[in-house]
Design a protein around this nucleic acid. Structure first.
Lengths: 221, 221
DNA sequence: ATCTAATAAAGAAAAAAATCTTTATATATT
DNA sequence: AATATATAAAGATTTTTTTCTTTATTAGAT
């Protein structure tokens, strides 16, 4: 355990990390169909992206392919999953059992992607004691104690944005090291805490802007 | 209406488009506090991002600031909203009234960001006829007729990934031009159809990988 | 009125990412 | 066995995006 076999400390770029799960999803479907080997050009064609991009992305995981054959699909899946850390089950607490929180609880397969939501928290009395997809909803005042005792490092934040910052302060005080922020708020956190923002608004903006640009380019013609 | 006043056809970059809604959200909160003018360094400090980046992003919208003063916050908000097209109410149909679909229906303020979900569709009998946040849930077999009659161009896709492609084919056949894809599937669409992918899996992967890299860098020290 | 400091704006440089090109290799075909 | 071909892998180029630098402007202080 002293020397790492893989000296490939090739820190993958963010765009690459975002593409890898997509490849993985496609590869798993392909494997289910009984396919044994697959080439980068085929993946690129199917996922409508550049084949050399696929080769480059796969190369960062350290997997080796063979000319004229492609990659062994089983080995490829294993390597990507291991590279992304999907084998470890990272335990997480979800905070905010509203609509979005409930949706996240019943979102399928997070566990296959390395994330296991082990409990949910809210302050609404009507929700406490209930459960969703096997995840119990507890009162927020139990968060700090449980997070410390269970050594949970990750929180999924789905509270209303009006209370996002104050809840975040509690998470940080409870030892949370990584926050998946699904609120539109920009969270203030200490340097050692990781925040991953998933803004629905940014995405809807991008979509509408693309549509708008398409309209404009057509009207110009 | 013949010649456009703004010859600034500065097509904004994708990263810029994703940042603008964040600025907007912060600016609106600042405006509520009664602030009248604001400078890029202040925005940058508050949102912990580079001040020159903020200046560049704001410049693409065409807004003008004044040295030593900053930007008029009201004018700034107006300009960004107009640039992003938030004034127009783009009507959309939501397809798939499951957990995520319901969450999207009750997601606040989409309309402020230019998107108005006017109806939802599903095939589950238990859901049809009900409504959520004032949005009625209709049977999927009414989709094509309604989309055409109401000239709805945008669809929000929140169906299970197993049926994502076949539903997409129906959307396209119904004249839908833009799809906000919240399933993990890579959709096959004709060239003229715009797809915006929002993958929860890509985001969770990014978070876990960042945490993993942090752990590794600490253990190396 | 003049000077100073803060800041927008424009431009240059650097960094990052995507795309393109070349090379090498292994399989299938003749 | 020799050749052609598909493909991975490595490298080079181009493009995009971010960061840095410089310049110009303006409010406030002296």
């Amino acid at each position: 355990m002293e020397a790492p076999q893989n000296t490939k400390r090739t820190k993958a770029s963010e765009p690459t990390l975002k593409r890898l799960p997509r490849y993985l999803h496609y590869l798993q479907k392909a494997q289910d169909k009984g396919i044994l080997t697959i080439s980068a050009p085929v993946i690129g064609k199917e996922l409508q992206c550049d084949p050399t991009q696929v080769v480059k992305d796969l190369a960062t995981t350290g997997v080796k392919g063979r000319p004229r054959i492609g990659y062994n699909i089983h080995e490829l899946i294993q390597t990507i999953e291991s590279f992304l850390g999907y084998n470890r089950a990272n335990e997480a607490f979800l905070v905010g059992a509203g609509n979005l929180g409930m949706a996240m609880m019943s979102y399928p397969d997070f566990q296959r992607f390395g994330l296991k939501i082990v409990a949910a928290f809210d302050t609404n009395r009507d929700k406490i004691g209930r459960s969703r997809s096997g995840i119990n909803i507890l009162h927020m005042n139990k968060f700090q104690d449980l997070a410390r005792r269970l050594q949970v490092r990750i929180a999924v934040l789905t509270v209303p944005h009006t209370v996002a910052q104050e809840v975040t302060d509690l998470l940080v005080a409870s030892g949370i090291e990584a926050i998946w922020n699904l609120t539109p708020s920009q969270l203030q956190v200490p340097e050692h805490v990781i925040v991953q923002n998933t803004s629905m608004y940014a995405n809807v903006t991008l979509l509408l802007k693309k549509l708008q640009e398409k309209d404009e380019s057509e009207s110009v013609q």
